[in-house]
Simulated assay, not measured.
Amino acid sequence: MDIAMDSLGALNVFVRVTETRSFTAAAGRLGVSPSAVGKAIARLEAQLGTRLFHRSTRSVALTAEGGLLLDRCRRIFAEIDALTGELSASREAPRGRLRVSFPLVGMLLMPTLSAFMRAYPEIELDLDFTDRIVDVIEEGFDAVVRTGEVSDSRLMTRSLGSFEHRVVGAPSYFERHGTPQAPEDLASHACLQHRYPSTGKLERWPLYRDEVFVGDGLPTAVTASTLEPLIYLAEQGQGVTCVPLFSVRAQLASGALVCVLEPFLKSTGMFRVVWPSNRLLTPKVRALVDFLASELMIAD
Rank of each mutant, 00 (worst) to 15 (best):
R146A: 06
G148Q: 03
G148V: 02
G148T: 04
V150N: 11
V150P: 07
V150Q: 12
D152M: 10
L155N: 12
M156E: 07
T157Q: 12
R158Q: 07
S159L: 08
L160R: 12
L160T: 07
G161H: 09
S162H: 11
H165Y: 13
R166M: 00
V167F: 13
G169P: 06
A170W: 03
A170N: 09
S172R: 14
Y173M: 04
F174D: 00
E175Q: 15
G178N: 05
T179I: 10
T179W: 05
Q181I: 12
E184D: 14
L186I: 07
L186F: 11
A187K: 14
H189V: 05
H189C: 11
C191N: 08
H194W: 10
R195Y: 02
R195E: 03
Y196M: 04
P197M: 04
T199Q: 09
G200H: 10
K201F: 08
K201R: 13
R204Y: 08
R204Q: 06
P206I: 03
Y208I: 04
R209F: 04
D210S: 15
E211Q: 13
G215E: 07
G215D: 08
D216A: 13
G217N: 05
G217V: 02
P219I: 12
T220D: 00
T223G: 03
T223D: 01
L227Y: 14
L227A: 05
E228W: 14
P229E: 00
P229A: 04
L230N: 12
L230F: 13
L230H: 14
I231P: 01
Y232N: 05
A234K: 04
E235K: 15
P244C: 08
L245F: 10
F246S: 06
F246K: 10
R249T: 01
R249M: 00
A250H: 12
Q251P: 07
L252D: 02
L252I: 06
A253V: 00
G255V: 02
G255I: 01
V258I: 10
V258A: 08
V258T: 12
V258H: 09
C259W: 02
C259N: 06
C259D: 02
E262W: 11
E262P: 13
P263Y: 03
F264S: 01
L265V: 15
